[in-house]
Amino acid sequence: MTVATETKTGAVPPPSSEDVITVTKMNKWYGNFHVLKDIDLSVRKGERIVICGPSGSGKSTLIRTLNRLEVYQQGEITVNDILLGDDVKNIEAVRRDVCMVFQHFNLFPHMTVLENLTLAPIWVRKMPKKEANELAMHYLERVRIAEQAHKFPGQLSGGQQQRVAIARSLCMQPKIMLFDEPTSALDPEMVKEVLDVMVELAKEGMTMLCVTHEMGFAKEVADRVIFMDEGQIIEMAGPHEFFDNPKSDRTKLFLSQILSH
């Protein structure tokens, strides 16, 4: 598995004791299908959590409920003390602070890279265009792609597109970032450039929830690793304990499958 070796300078700062996300007894159904079962989870500020599990285990659905891309039917989610329910104002307030990076990037193909980045600051944060452009260039430099600012997403490689997508989220200056399998759609040689950026973010103290099977990334930056199966959280532990001493049989089976090659 690819590990972001170059950026191993500096340690990942420990999370604070303050909770930013609290999920209590949350349940979700698709029709009759029980996707998420009694999820309890609290995330501290600055904490980095990696969620893994077999496909169909509900891991993507879980992080998608955290910014209301998916609704839930039972229980409660609060983000930054804001109850995430049907209230549209609350939803928009949460989304201002929680950004999502998608498996398929979801960049806007009809806009240049720069326009992709400035869209939300201009329309949601009401930032003047000039200021938004400066902010966008700042983050494009951080993901090392500033020279592509005036190209269209379709002209970039997958890895470049995903870095643009990360920069686009950063332009909203979020407090929490959700990553939904950010490297799964990439060619193998591009995985590292995206993970490097994510590791840097982790080191700057960003609160991150990341659905991924990049176990090297999990070992390097995660404070906690969560294993999900059939809509439940099966195991939750620090990376050392999770990888070296998994408790549940299902976790052991999953790890043996994923680490065997």
Partner: peptide, 14 residues
């Protein structure tokens, strides 16, 4: 694609 709308939502666009 549905993802385009989701990207807008996750950037807090109405």
């Amino acid at each position: 694609p549905r993802g385009q709308f989701e990207a807008g939502e996750s950037l807090a666009l109405s």
